[in-house]
Nucleic acid binder design. Structure first.
Lengths: 202, 202
DNA sequence: ACCTGAACACCGTTCAAGT
DNA sequence: ACCTGAACACCGTTCAAGT
């Protein structure tokens, strides 16, 4: 039967979850789908584009949040971290796709965070940078956390430390996020030059 | 004549500067040194280790800074960005080595930033996280900046915009850094609000 | 329109054997 | 101690040719 983009992304996500990003190759994916490697290039121009589609699939559950700007940032970042942690090497894959500019979902997320930063009083010319700074943090923190988690899982089974470590990671994640939110909230003091009324809405 | 680690790192850095990270392969490096690929594995256990040594070479000029904690953070981050920008794909290579835990220089830099954060009043248990948050920002910002710079350089020559764009990048970099420094400076307020983390404990 | 077959131009790593 | 030669087990991408 016919191959569709969706099938490729489904199969690619399965390989990622079961074997990790190192085994997510075009040839391996083709083998899994019982097609020749060349067939994939009818549907995607190259591997980067395919990985971008996988990233977008992983990020599907990360939707815009309601509430004030603080709630929106915390909400999006929490969901983002959860989405990354629920796929093997998820943080690494999304980081790469984000850096390569191949994830529409990340563009959407940055836009959401930008509008939150704007609501916090960050000047229009700097709101996206504030948003990207938050994203760098979430991706960096989670990639680090995930590599440790996966390394531990591969080694000896820790009797009960695991849940303690997981809890700890959540608290640590929150601390860094609060640090960033405090920085964003202090922005009026920062760009004292462009002081204007704290209007919201987007 | 005999091959030494230094020779490998020198030649690898030259390939990086002249052709970029995609061309920095073990086979290409061996060819450039007129040895067989296997020879490199006498000196380095694997490619990651070699790349870590290149990262450390790039980061050599990033030394500890004097002054109060704010000056030290700004100083280290400025020198870090400069070091990354002065080698083709420098930010990408150092990011990868940092994530893989293969750069001693990055460990040193994080330690310096941690002590600055501690001086700012960040609790001992969170100082390193604050430091890593700063590093995620510098690496993310600079990788982004560098990929745009290199893309522009490959395309049409911009008559005079280049310097304007470069200046702009410096100002933008400073803004994000100030945001983080404000967040770190506001940490006393933060720890007080630590009751914020009523997670599902177990 | 969609896919195969086969090729092109590579990779990282290992390891017996040489000096 | 240090390196060669050759192999092992792969890659991403292209493209004429088939259906």
């Amino acid at each position: 039967m016919q191959l569709h983009k969706r099938d490729l992304v489904d199969a690619a996500t399965a390989i990622l979850d079961n074997y990790g990003i190192a085994d997510l190759t075009m040839r391996r994916l083709a083998r899994e789908l019982n097609v020749s490697p060349g067939a994939l290039y009818w549907h995607f121009a190259n591997k980067q584009e395919l990985l971008g589609a996988v990233a977008d699939r992983i990020l599907q559950p990360v939707a815009d949040e309601p509430g004030d700007w603080r709630d929106r940032i915390v909400g999006v970042c929490t969901r983002l971290r959860d989405a990354l942690l629920s796929h093997t090497d998820g943080a690494e894959l999304v980081s790469a796709s984000f850096a390569a500019g191949q994830s529409e979902a990340m563009t959407r997320i940055v836009a959401g965070l930008s509008s939150a930063a704007a609501d916090a009083g960050v000047a229009a010319g700097h709101a996206e940078l504030a948003a990207r700074t938050v994203v760098y943090y979430v991706l960096g923190f989670t990639a680090d956390e995930q590599s440790r988690l996966q390394w531990d899982a591969a080694g000896a089974e820790l009797p009960d430390e695991q849940s303690a470590l997981t809890d700890d990671a959540g608290e640590r994640f929150g601390f860094g996020l609060d640090l960033l939110i405090n920085g964003i909230g202090a922005t009026e003091t920062l760009s004292a030059a462009a002081a204007y009324s704290p209007r919201s809405r987007r």
